[in-house]
Design a binder for these strands. Structure first.
Length: 420
RNA sequence: GUGCGUGUAGCUCAGGUUGGUUAGAGCACUGGGUUGUGGUCCCAGGGGUCGCCGGUUCAAAUCCGGUCACGCACCCCA
């Protein structure tokens, strides 16, 4: 039996890792510009952290978590998302006492036991950001703007749409829920099995059911946006105003329902048509109740998470060529003496930030040239017996196919001068 | 978790329906043509227990069953 990876878990190979770096670097750069700092938190938490945050009736908690017993009997879970752990750390490390505003971002692998598909894995990477402290709508707008800037930077906005809505808060949502139940109950028998169950557990989720019949019925349902309390409405309007002011394009979709229970007020999704049924690329919203729910002070927060695999998939469409790795210099050597001389030269160049490759054994010049070409070397330094005798290296410009002899003890400086 | 489809060299795929001598191609890889010069060209070579297990058969890549993986849709979501 051949050894292999677990279903739904995959390797990210060197040929695609530069694309990942491009995406991760862009996120870091932009998030840092917006005042965020990275936080690294454990992959494993007490199950309770997620159960209490996400809501016990959510699919993630009900059937997708990797949960197991520790040796002492406590229940542990591999994180299915990042927010719960960040908030746990925020509380545990008393970050609220250090500053009124905490801007945190994270990246790492998340775990959900779903049926794997393209762009959907059991072990997958997310980058997320949490802005904890302010409850003002300007913070929602800043966070969403930051997210959109990231997609601009990675050239993905052509494939994306930003949808926003408001879910109301503790004042208006319960009343709205009742209204929904009132609306759906008479038509209960026309709803799909799933939605009949949702009517009890979480009537909001009926709104984004994909079942044709449910969609029809939901189309006429009262909208949360018409039932916001004054404060929530003001908040939502201010968010929209702020986004418009900085030119972030959005559409209002009152049917947005997040899969996690902790959201309040602003919710948003960045979606695409390019990835089949995996249309969500990033999503987030405000979660004013969560910090307190997990045992911390009553502190507001907004956040989002994005799926890196899906972004990589889109990125491949935007920039199909990718990001090939290129070396600056290839040193081709002929003969044992030349090889011995080439080695310290390679090390010295690398010391000076020049990327260098060379063969380890004795290969024909031709095959070394081929390798230099394949590695995308800008220059090949040829060091054979002739050059050794004269104390020079033959420097070949690979793009112009021109060659020039340069004294071996001057070649490093000469190369650096040429580069700058 | 449900349904449908696919699974042959590192990659993309022929062959399979009509089982039958050493299972093919292109790309990639290695070497040579040019005894010291890449990206083009030519030649040669290496690489496959035909996803895995079992069944039918004198004989299975080919037919059947199961299983695993991937893909698509459902579901769910980032």
């Amino acid at each position: 039996m051949k050894i292999k990876s677990i279903r739904g878990f995959h390797d990210i190979l060197p040929e695609s890792i530069r694309r990942w770096h491009f995406i991760e670097d862009a996120a870091r750069r932009i998030f840092e510009l917006y005042g965020f700092s990275e936080i690294r938190i454990p992959v494993l938490e007490f199950t309770d952290v997620f159960a209490r945050s996400l809501g016990t009736t959510t699919d993630i908690v009900e059937k997708e978590m990797y949960t197991f017993e520790d040796r002492d009997g406590s229940s542990l879970t591999l994180r299915p998302e990042g927010t719960a752990g960040v908030v746990r750390a925020y509380i545990e490390d008393s970050m609220h006492a250090k500053s009124g505003i905490s801007k945190l971002y994270y990246t790492g692998m998340m775990f959900r036991h779903e049926r794997p598909q393209k762009g959907r894995f059991r072990g997958f990477y997310q980058i997320g950001a949490e802005l904890i402290g302010p409850q003002e709508p300007a913070s929602d707008a800043e966070l969403v703007t930051m997210l959109w800037r990231f997609f601009e930077e990675t050239e993905l906005t052509q494939f994306l749409e930003l949808e926003i809505s408001s879910l109301g808060d503790q004042n208006c949502r319960p009343q709205y829920k009742e209204k929904l139940v009132e609306y759906f109950t008479p038509q209960k028998n026309d709803l799909c099995e799933n939605c009949q169950r949702r009517l009890q557990a979480n009537p909001l989720r009926i709104l984004d059911c994909k079942e044709k019949k449910c969609k029809e019925i939901a189309a006429e349902a009262p909208s949360m946006l018409d039932n916001l309390c004054q404060e929530c409405e003001n908040h939502f309007n201010a968010v929209k105003e702020n986004l418009t002011a900085v030119g972030v394009p959005f559409v209002i979709n009152p049917k947005i329902v997040r899969g996690l229970d902790y959201y309040t007020r602003t919710v948003f999704e960045v979606t695409t048509q390019e990835l089949g049924s995996q249309n969500a690329v990033a999503a987030g919203g405000r979660y004013d109740g969560l910090v307190e729910e997990l045992g911390g002070p009553d502190i507001a927060a907004v956040g989002f998470a994005m799926g890196i695999e899906r972004i990589v998939l889109l990125q491949e469409k935007a920039i199909p060529k990718g990001f090939p790795k290129k070396v600056d210099v290839f040193i081709a050597h002929l003969g044992d003496e030349a090889r011995k001389a080439a080695f310290p030269l390679a090390i010295e160049l690398r010391q000076k930030d020049v990327s260098v490759e060379m063969d380890y054994g004795n290969k024909s010049l031709k095959s070394q040239m081929k390798r230099a070409d394949k590695l995308g070397a800008g220059f090949t330094f040829i060091l054979g017996e002739e050059e050794l005798e004269k104390g020079v290296v033959k420097v070949r410009n690979m793009n112009e196919s021109s060659e020039e002899d340069i004294k071996i003890n001057e070649v490093v400086d000469a190369y650096q001068k040429f580069k700058s």
